[in-house]
Simulated assay, not measured.
Amino acid sequence: MTEKISVNSQAKLSEAITMLTRLFRDKKFVVVSMRPGKDRTLDQNALWFAMYDRIAKTTDMGDVEDVRRYCKLHFGVPIMRSSSRDFFEGWATSFVHLTYERKLHLMGACAMFGPDGFPVTRLFNREQGCIYTDKIAAYFGGNGVYFDDLLGEAAA
Score class of each variant (00 low, 15 high):
Tyr52Leu: 11
Met61Ile: 03
Leu20His: 07
Phe140Thr: 00
Tyr70Val: 04
Asn8Ser: 08
Glu65Thr: 04
Gly142Cys: 12
Asn143Leu: 11
Ser33Gln: 10
Gly114Phe: 14
Glu65Ser: 08
Thr121Asp: 11
Ile5Gly: 01
Tyr100Glu: 14
Gly90Glu: 13
Phe147Ile: 00
Ala156Val: 01
Val145Lys: 11
Ala16Asn: 04
Phe95Pro: 03
Gly62Lys: 00
Phe88His: 15
Tyr139Asn: 09
Met51Thr: 00
Ser84Glu: 08
Met61Cys: 03
Trp91Ser: 04
Arg25Trp: 06
Tyr52Glu: 10
Ala156Ser: 12
Glu15Trp: 06
Ile5Phe: 02
Thr121Ile: 14
Thr59Leu: 04
Phe49Asn: 08
Met61Gln: 10
Ser94Gly: 14
Asn45Leu: 04
Ala46His: 04
Arg122Met: 11
Ile131Phe: 14
Glu153Trp: 09
Val145Gly: 11
Ile136Ala: 05
Arg68Phe: 15
Thr41Leu: 14
Arg69Gly: 15
Ala154Tyr: 15
Gly129Trp: 02
Glu127Met: 07
Gly144Ser: 03
Ser83Val: 04
Leu123Gly: 05
Val32Gly: 00
Ile136Arg: 03
Ser9Val: 05
His97Lys: 11
Thr2Asp: 09
Gly141Met: 02
Phe124Gln: 00
Arg22Val: 11
Phe140Asp: 03
Lys72Gly: 04
Phe75Tyr: 13
Arg81Ile: 02
Val32Ile: 09
Val64Glu: 13
Phe88Asp: 02
Ala154Leu: 07
Ser94Leu: 09
Ala11Leu: 11
